[in-house]
């Protein structure tokens, strides 16, 4: 055992670093999914597509800036611009035109509608960006690499993945916790989540809160995608992978848990990246193995609370 660790310390180190960066991205998507579910009571199957579109948009804007000869740090502006644009344009569009028609309908209907939206958005990506890989890694190169000592070896790892991704995820986590617990708008969102009828009766404009929350959640997914874009070659299908993976995080953590989702994202991100280095065939399997294992023992998720149904 000891010798195995010694021999593989380099790979393990890489897996840990990769896992952390991965977890940060998955968390951004999962937390948005969670937030939207809390207020809309709809798990948006198309949420992963917003991640993908955010990534593509960020890459396009970045490439456009680069072609104009703008300085490389503008690449970061591109990431933020993409997230804001998706949140502010696509978010309200989807909520107003589509989701608003199906609130309070049968669950299966709501599921099918967001699934149909997912099918549509997956092809929108293909139509706009084609099927050839798109990549724009200027933000990654801009910060360069950091040499991390691991035993006798040294791992050069990009500063972007080491600091920026986990940093932004942490800021999102803390900021969101602060926003929901300390600000008026945040308290109102929590109130709508807990009891929509009571909140409406108290004069809260639930329709506005719903629109706001959905757009914010969409923006978070897009930000996740935008942040991921420098580290990935973008190809069709990342939306599908992302939604299932972030759903796995949400289900494992328990619906509605924000801090729990962060820990679970870490668990699943690490599990996945360890698989990438040691058993690449099973990369996709590991997150679901973790999820199924957790759900078998705790059907309500690691941090979830059992909701009692009223009779």
């Amino acid at each position: 055992m000891g010798t195995w660790f010694a021999e593989n310390s380099l790979l393990l180190g890489l897996a840990l670093l990769d896992g952390l960066a991965n977890a940060a991205l998955v968390f951004m998507v999962a937390v948005g999914l969670n937030l939207v579910f809390g207020v809309l009571r709809i798990v948006n199957v198309a949420h992963g597509s917003l991640f993908a579109i955010g990534a593509y948009t960020a890459a396009s804007i970045g490439l456009f800036f680069a072609a104009r000869g703008l300085p490389p740090w503008m690449g970061y502006v591109a990431l933020v611009l993409a997230a804001v644009a998706i949140g502010a344009v696509l978010g309200p569009l989807i909520e107003r035109l589509l989701l608003r028609r199906i609130y309070g309908h049968e669950d299966v209907l709501q599921l099918l509608v967001t699934f149909a939206l997912f099918m549509i958005l997956e092809d929108v990506q293909k139509l706009v960006w084609g099927v050839q890989p798109v990549s724009q890694d200027a933000p990654l190169r801009f910060l360069g690499t950091v040499d991390i000592p691991f035993g006798e070896d040294v791992i050069p790892f990009t500063a972007y993945q080491l600091f920026v991704l986990p940093g932004i995820a942490l800021v999102t986590l803390l900021g969101l916790a602060w926003f929901l617990r300390r600000t008026l708008t945040g308290r109102v969102i929590v109130a709508v989540t807990t009891d929509k009828e009571a909140a409406t009766a108290m004069g809260i404009d639930a329709a506005r809160i719903t629109l706001l929350t959905f757009s914010f959640g969409a923006g978070l997914a897009a930000l996740g995608g935008a942040l991921a874009s420098p580290t990935l070659a973008l190809v069709p299908g990342i939306g599908a992978q992302t939604i299932v993976l972030s759903f796995a995080v949400v289900a494992t953590a328990g619906l509605g848990q924000i801090e729990g989702a962060a820990l679970t994202a870490l668990l699943i991100g690490l599990g996945r990246s360890i698989a990438v280095y040691f058993a690449p065939e099973f990369e996709v399997v590991v997150p679901y193995l973790i999820m199924v294992a957790v759900l078998l023992v705790r059907p309500q998720g690691l941090f979830g609370v059992i909701e009692t149904r009223r009779v």
Binding site: L98, L109, L112, V113, F115, A116, L117, F118, M119, I120, E122, D123, V124, K126, L127, V131
Partner: peptide, 15 residues
């Protein structure tokens, strides 16, 4: 390239 999109669109209309 637009096949899923058409399916999704029809699905929405039917639902």
């Amino acid at each position: 390239d637009a096949w899923q999109m058409i399916l999704g669109g029809v699905l929405l209309v039917v639902i």
